[in-house]
Design a protein around this nucleic acid. Structure first.
Lengths: 229, 229
DNA sequence: GTAATTTTGTGTAAAATAAACACTAAATGA
DNA sequence: TCATTTAGTGTTTATTTTACACAAAATTAC
């Protein structure tokens, strides 16, 4: 006979930030069993009258104080036993924050929330490593066919920031000239009249991603795509 | 104060079949309220000890008797109010069946299960139209970057079947010569020594998708991709 | 059994895109 | 003023994509 169980529904988020040629992920330290004191993805149970997106945003706010600039659903995990105590289905999300928001708010306990470099991750609770890997793959592939890289940069950025972001996240060298030519050919960047002064080297023009323009182009069948040699 | 609700977890599936230049979807007629007598996607609540995939396969078996050849997760829907009575989170799946399985089993009540042409869909219960549209988009885009079209064809098929499948599903004309050249250049098809005799016209060689070969290529960085003029 | 019809099968030339590649310019610091 | 660092820029070659039309093998109609 069928048993209709009391399955719990949770959301978890993999939130990426990027700064100084380094990709980071936002994690929290669990305060309760199971996996007490382990690091885990921020998340929690969905409440009665909120949407899944609202749940993610609420949990992120409560647990980390971080404001999210881009959020999309990633995947749902529901294998029995992934939480050792209850049956929990987790709907996971993929988030990006700009450097402005890439910091922890003062009112959260800093010991329990931390940005980790993607290259120095601790062991994670539950199946969160699997979720994180999926998110990383998503970020990498999405970078090549949607202009989401800009979500990880300041509103105005020198071109080289974009270049380095691609190189860092995709973990491969790219030809600067060809990359610049390609991106500029899309005509989705606006050149500002501002100048960025690096610590050393020649100053650079600042660019801005023109979302408006992108949407227009998109409606006319334009398809963002970056490939590499 | 927070209320942890008894949210129900369901799975629903959008299953596509293809035959004679027509794309179809598998629907069931609801026997109970709400939306009694409306057509809906096959699906139902997840049981205590089954995975989400098992739940989908079980529901499809129970409700339609159809065997699925390809299954992947589509998206999760959880907006409050999408089911007028309970809070139900639905994890939706996207399935494909080959022409062999593109029929209803005798032991299901034929009046309650039906394949509908994608061009002649009835009104659907809940938010199932939204789910179906998302599945259709997924099918269309996936067709261009993964060799899933073969799941909708017989194991051995004349080349023109593939051609027509792409034209039908993507709803656009393609150049036969360029298409054939492209697909054959991937070297993922094996030419059999069998001949297909159409009702009229010149007989055609039968091909077979070489999954083995595809996986090998994939591991060496090969990336399936079909574009159109 | 000949002609009309249907579908399969095939190549080449032109155009567009992607890849490879290196030096000068503008700033800072030694 | 020299060394160092990062920004900025074009051309040539190779590769990929597009456009395009006719002959071959079967069936059907006359």
């Amino acid at each position: 006979m069928k048993v209709f169980p009391n399955i719990k529904v949770a959301v978890d988020a993999v939130v990426f930030g990027y700064k100084a040629k380094e990709l980071s992920v936002l994690l929290i330290k669990r305060g309760v069993q199971p996996y007490k004191d382990s690091w885990a993805l921020p998340g929690g149970l969905v409440l009665e009258n909120e949407s899944l997106e609202q749940a993610v945003e609420r949990e992120l706010q409560e647990e980390t104080g971080v404001t999210i600039d881009y959020l999309e659903q990633l995947y749902s995990f529901g294998k029995p036993g992934r939480d050792p105590r209850n049956r929990v289905i987790s709907i996971t999300y993929f988030g990006l924050v700009s450097p402005n928001h890439f910091k922890l708010q003062a009112d959260t306990d800093a010991a329990d929330v931390k940005w980790f470099s993607i290259n120095e991750l601790p062991d994670l609770a539950f199946d969160h490593d699997k979720i994180l890997n999926m998110a990383k793959s998503r970020l990498q592939s999405k970078l090549t066919y949607q202009p989401i890289g800009f979500e990880l940069l300041n509103t105005e950025f020198p071109f080289s920031d974009l270049e380095h972001l691609y190189q860092t996240i995709l973990n491969q060298k790219i030809d600067r000239r060809n990359f610049r030519k390609k991106i500029l050919s899309f005509e989705i960047l606006t050149e500002t009249d501002k100048i960025y002064k690096p610590e050393s080297g020649r100053p650079a023009k600042l660019f801005r991603f023109n979302q408006q323009k992108y949407k227009e182009l998109q409606e006319n069948g334009f398809h963002f795509e970056i490939k590499f040699a």
